[in-house]
Write a protein that binds this DNA or RNA. Structure first.
Length: 317
DNA sequence: AATACCTTCAACCGCCGGGAC
DNA sequence: AGTCCCGGCGGTTGAAGGTAT
């Protein structure tokens, strides 16, 4: 953490650095609530902040975003991080995209402190040589092996950390979703079969691992019994104007960030969002058959490995 | 109680890719 | 085609707080 810079009284054009003051947070929060995300340099200017746009973006994404989950990572989240890291390596934003409410920065920090250390300890106590590299690797000791339960429940493409004003995005073609009998083998482990309606890693399910039911009531968890996907009502995303409308009636409760909870329910914004949410393309384009590549990998294929884990009841804290 | 060491995590830095001009 | 600007990403830093001695 850094000391907050003193306001540049002598040179008002000088941009501040360091920790954000509560006043700055308020300014940014109020501006974002009123105007939504636009060009970040404009945000900084129009909100009256002597910060660079980048700094505003970072502050919003890593701290002020209403859908952020706070607190310690659950064991399930830990397992998922380890597993995803074994597939994706240090692609923190990709990993974060599958952990609703978590940021890439948070996951990166968590990895570099807690998990890395744990892996190091476990590897030193086992016969296998080190595995502290950033290269993709198999999950290893120190964690319960990732299981279908955890993966399937958690492999959700969250509102990407790159999209600040997009509470929920969800495949809106549920009627066209395939049902399939699912057997798969991942890392030498066979998993049970069942019928599912949606590739789970594509099932964006909103905040806190839950979503709004047909009655508009927020529900935790993803699934009903027997692998039946509980389908949240759609957030309508107009293709014409990108207007995002949350059509729930306000039963959402944010258990760890209540100061922002109303935001979710009231926002109907037309993001100027010029970046078009690259991270979300993976969701949006999936059914259109557009392959999304990441480096040399076919990310669809990679994530399909995960998506073949069966669903089970699960509730993200 | 004082000090040293360790851990956590917010924030910065530099690079890269994409879009606009 | 070249340049500039912006957003996004991963790596790194460093202060604060915690723990050990």
């Amino acid at each position: 953490m850094r000391k907050p810079d003193q306001p540049a009284k002598n040179n008002p054009t000088k941009l501040r650095k360091g920790l954000w003051s509560p006043e700055e947070d308020d300014k940014l929060m109020n501006y974002m609530l009123a105007n939504g995300q636009g060009c970040w340099s404009d945000v900084a200017r129009n909100a009256g902040l002597q910060r660079c746009g980048k700094s505003c973006r970072l502050r919003w994404i890593n701290y002020l975003r209403p859908d952020l989950k706070r607190g310690a990572f659950s064991p399930q989240e830990e397992d998922l991080i380890v597993h995803l890291h074994s597939i994706l390596g240090n692609r923190w934003s990709q990993i974060a995209a599958r952990l609703p409410g978590r940021t890439d920065n948070e996951i990166k920090n968590f990895w570099n402190s807690t998990i890395k250390k744990r892996l190091r300890n476990s590897s030193s106590s086992s016969s296998s040589p080190k595995s502290d590299s950033s290269e993709p690797q198999e999950p290893m000791g120190g964690f319960t092996s990732i299981n279908d339960h955890d993966i399937m429940a958690m492999c959700m493409d969250s509102s990407s950390s790159s999209t600040s004003v997009q509470p929920v995005a969800l495949c809106n073609q549920l009627s066209q979703l395939p049902q399939f009998e699912n057997t798969c083998e991942v890392n030498g482990t066979s998993f049970a079969s069942g019928y599912y309606h949606m590739p789970p890693c594509l099932a964006q399910v909103g905040f806190e691992g839950g979503f709004y039911g047909d009655d508009g009531i927020y529900q935790s968890g993803l699934l009903g019994g027997e692998g039946e996907l509980l389908v949240p009502p759609l957030v309508s995303i107009s293709s014409e104007d990108n207007t995002i409308t949350n059509n729930n009636s306000g039963n959402y409760t944010n258990d760890n960030n209540n100061r922002n909870s109303n935001y979710i329910n009231t926002i109907t914004t037309t993001p100027t969002n010029n970046n078009n949410n690259k991270g979300d393309d993976m969701v949006g384009n999936y059914w259109g058959g557009e392959n999304v590549r990441m480096g040399e990998w076919d990310l669809d294929d990679l994530m399909r490995d995960i998506s073949l884990f069966p669903f089970l009841d699960f509730q993200v804290e």
